[in-house]
Amino acid sequence: MTRLTRGYQFCAAHRLHTPALSAEKNRELYGKCNNPWGHGHNYRVEISVTGAVGPDSGQLVSVNALDKLVQRAVLCDFDHSDLNRDIAAFGSGMVPTSENVAVEIWRRLAEAWPADFPELAGVRLGETKRNIFELTNEEQ
């Protein structure tokens, strides 16, 4: 089994607040992540693919092509954005927790994924070095 992982970074703001709960409950649930004006992170996202290595190219995927896809599908919109206001998925009540941000990244990648690419195997999102969220293809 060969699995290739490529890491990227984007910087974005967010605020954790759900309209389903009162202001007090939001404060209790999300703590300082509920501060009204939001805050930001340098997110690190790792994208993993699995499949067969091309006998001539020696490659699982063209890293250049993967970079372009991730740039187009995710980083263009996410980098230097306010996730709550600038990313449509988080404008309608879905809270931009890193769990949900990882799911949205997966959704965008899956939508743009070229038919001749190897399988998307994982999305690993680090909000900070200490908080890391991982989705695998078994869950998708």
């Binding site: 089994m1 060969t2 890491g7």
Partner: peptide
């Protein structure tokens, strides 16, 4: 690099 790695197993 820090941003590119491969896992291999059989």
């Amino acid at each position: 690099t820090e941003d590119l790695f491969v896992d291999y197993s059989e």
